[in-house]
Design a binder for these strands. Structure first.
Length: 633
RNA sequence: GCCGGGAUAGCUCAGCUGGCAGAGCACCGCUCUUGUAAAGCGGUUGUCGCGGGUUCGAUUCCCGCUCCCGGCUCCA
């Protein structure tokens, strides 16, 4: 039998040879370092036979693919340790994930954070004696089900039931055996640098009607140095946490008197207002007109829009004179109301209405998270009413505008196309048309995207724009949604050039997403060091001694008159201390003034993180800063 | 909502088994008049999240509630 190696060379092997045999044929060192084998892009277990003509790549601990194998194997050892410590534990699943692994258990008693150390200790005890991972293939399903039942492992029974007989494999290391597809390490020897990180509840199969299991998260690396670096990055990420920075920079706070609704402090509001200014400029440049619609509506409109049926759980309600009212969770009906307040012609289309729309969505209490997940949401919402022919161009326009916005902030973004959910309104033909239009628009805009089947809005498919936060969590920023339902339900029409009535299409879009979340994302993205145009305080003026107070105040006034946000710091503290505090506050420009500067009409400039840059004439620096802020650099 | 953890000064946190509540920073006052990352001395600061229970006595133990934190998509 002949197989091919990545460099194109051939390798002769006896029939039935495994990946490990192939590695050994190349060299004993490779065989020892081998973790798995990649065949046609698929990472497979070394123990599996290779077939004639396949192209093999031996994965070693130097390859990134090997980490998932190591972590999966570490998860098995963790499960083994848990079974030692809590006999009778029911085990569920334990995969490798992006930055580590987890394993889900149903434990006989609740465990706490201290128990993670106990489990880790047991793992180290187990690992002191290296054990081979033994793979067993072609396991008889009936016998296996019988065995799992007798071992009281209901989750394994359920998993095995879903597998085709004859294609079931087991892995055993030491006294632990698990239903598992693999691949796994050859032995437990490479498992050294690992750490259990956290413990959390997780529903069996992610379904809240199922049992809540205990999930233990951990991570593992081949080298201790890599683990240390990973833990350092996690710590660094925690330092970037927008909730922490929001307090340190006095931007906002949250309070139990209003869960999920931030209180914006003066400095945070500066950022909000700068974003609003940008938003208005973009509305002007991209042909949107700003509107403002009510927050509380008769429930009739929510019945008609479909929110009553599909979204009631997440809405807030009140009443007036026994008339039930609903707080808007979305702005669309308000914009539809504006559209239908007059007769519309094809000449009016596309009609692009934009609003800084305040909506409220009742989230499960455990889901709230600083600014990133709130109940009180201010969207940069817009709805585009257009003809069918205009849909694709309008969607492309949204994608281009989105690129433009994220470019201003250097935000990395990932696109997802979400298709029809189970819980939806409208017939399949309409959904076909809507999904096709979005896919076409994406293709024409040249955007790469992931497909997220079944995650669309109840009224239409959508393109979501996601970013990743400081600790690797993914958050939706923008969304572009296509909707043929709402125009139908509200009987929206326009008069065409044929003098007949037609139904407009509707595009819902938010590109910042929500101002709350966007600012939260920006805080983490910049780690509080906002570019000049967004910085709450752009320049702080520090007099060396109190005889310079008057000059310092004059400098600040001069900058303020030029449109900059500047203030003097006249406290009787040392210059060194004021500089330390200004740096901690991430103020972009620190201007020190003493006798020399007063004499020369100058300021000594210190840019954030750059140190002292020397004296400059005030007028020159002022003009430079104004230009820099204007250009949003 | 559910699982686990938590809530003590403005902030970060300590407070073993129940016995007068603490530190650092911040804040206030005084001294220093300062030249590029924290000057010295002194001082103030608490419904120990809320409500109930046990107890001679509860920040501490028990119950309920509120809010916060980690997580609840990653398929054997």
């Amino acid at each position: 039998m002949k197989v091919t190696l990545p460099d194109g060379s051939g390798l002769d092997l006896p029939d039935g040879a495994s990946g490990l045999d192939a590695a050994a044929a190349v060299g004993p060192r490779l065989a020892k370092a081998a973790v798995a084998v990649q065949v046609n892009g698929e990472v497979r277990d070394l123990r599996l036979p290779v077939r004639e003509g396949e192209t093999l790549r031996i994965i070693t601990d130097r390859d990134p693919e090997a980490l998932a194998v190591l972590r999966h194997s570490t998860a098995h050892v963790m499960a083994q340790a848990v079974l030692h410590l809590w006999p009778g534990t029911k085990i569920a699943i334990g995969p490798a994930i992006a930055d580590g692994f987890y394993y889900d258990f149903e434990l006989p008693e609740p465990i706490g954070p201290d128990d993670l150390e106990r489990i880790e200790a047991e793992m180290r005890r187990i690992l002191a004696t290296p054990a081979e991972f033994v793979r067993e293939d072609g396991v008889d399903k009936t016998a296996l089900l019988e065995r799992f039942r007798s071992e009281h492992q209901p989750y394994k029974v359920e998993l095995a039931q879903g597998l085709p007989d004859g294609d079931i494999s087991l892995y055993r290391n030491d006294d632990f055996e698990d239903l598992c597809r693999g691949p796994h390490l050859q032995t437990t020897a490479p498992i050294k640098a690992f750490k259990l990180l956290s413990q959390a509840g997780a529903y069996w199969r992610g379904d809240s009607s199922n049992t809540m299991l205990t999930r233990i998260y951990g991570t593992a690396f081949f080298k201790q140095a890599d683990l240390d670096e990973h833990l350092r990055l996690l710590e660094e990420a925690r330092r970037r946490d927008h909730r922490r920075i929001g307090r340190e920079l006095d931007l906002f706070h949250t309070s139990e008197v209003a869960p999920g609704a931030p209180f914006w402090h003066p400095r945070g509001m500066v950022i909000w207002n700068e974003l609003t200014r940008l938003w208005r400029e973009l509305n002007r440049d991209w042909g949107y007109r700003e509107v403002r619609t009510p927050i509380i509506y008769s429930v009739d409109i929510w019945r008609r829009s479909g929110h009553w049926d599909k979204y009631r759980e997440n809405m807030f309600f009140t009443e007036k004179d026994e008339r039930p009212l609903g707080v808007k969770p979305m702005n669309c009906p308000g914009h539809v109301e504006i559209y239908t307040a007059d007769r519309r012609s094809y000449r009016d289309l596309p009609m692009r209405l934009a609003e800084q729309g305040l909506v409220h969505r009742d989230e499960p209490s455990g889901a709230l998270h600083g600014l990133l997940r709130v109940i009180h949401i201010t969207q940069d919402d817009a709805h585009i009413f257009c003809t069918d022919d205009q849909v694709e161009d309008e969607v492309i326009g949204c994608l281009e505008l989105a690129r433009h916005i994220y470019g201003i902030f250097d935000l990395p973004v990932r696109l997802e196309l979400s298709t029809r959910p189970e819980n939806r309104i409208g017939d399949d033909a309409l959904w076909d048309r809507a999904e096709g239009a979005l896919a076409n628009a994406l293709a024409r805009a040249g955007e790469a995207y992931d497909l997220n089947e079944g995650d669309g809005a109840f009224y239409g498919p959508k393109i979501d724009l996601h970013m990743t936060d400081s600790v690797g969590r993914s958050w939706q920023m923008g969304t572009v949604q296509l909707d043929y339902q709402m125009p139908e339900r509200f009987d929206m029409v326009y008069t065409g050039d044929d003098n007949a009535e037609h139904r407009p299409a509707m595009v819902h879009r938010a590109l910042f997403g929500a101002f709350e979340r966007f600012i939260g994302i920006l805080i983490e993205h910049y780690a509080g060091a906002f570019p000049l145009w967004l910085a709450p305080v752009q320049a702080i003026v520090l007099p060396v001694a109190d005889r310079h107070d008057e000059y310092a105040t004059g400098v600040a006034d001069d900058l303020v008159a030029a449109g900059l946000r500047a203030e003097p710091d006249l406290r009787t503290e040392s210059v060194g201390k004021k500089i330390a505090e200004a740096e901690h506050q991430r103020i972009p420009c620190i201007l020190v003034v003493g006798d020399k500067e007063v004499e020369a009409g100058a300021v000594s400039l210190r840019r954030r993180d750059e140190g002292n840059l020397g004296a400059r004439p005030l007028a020159e620096l002022r003009d430079e800063l104004v230009a820099e802020a204007e250009q949003r650099r």
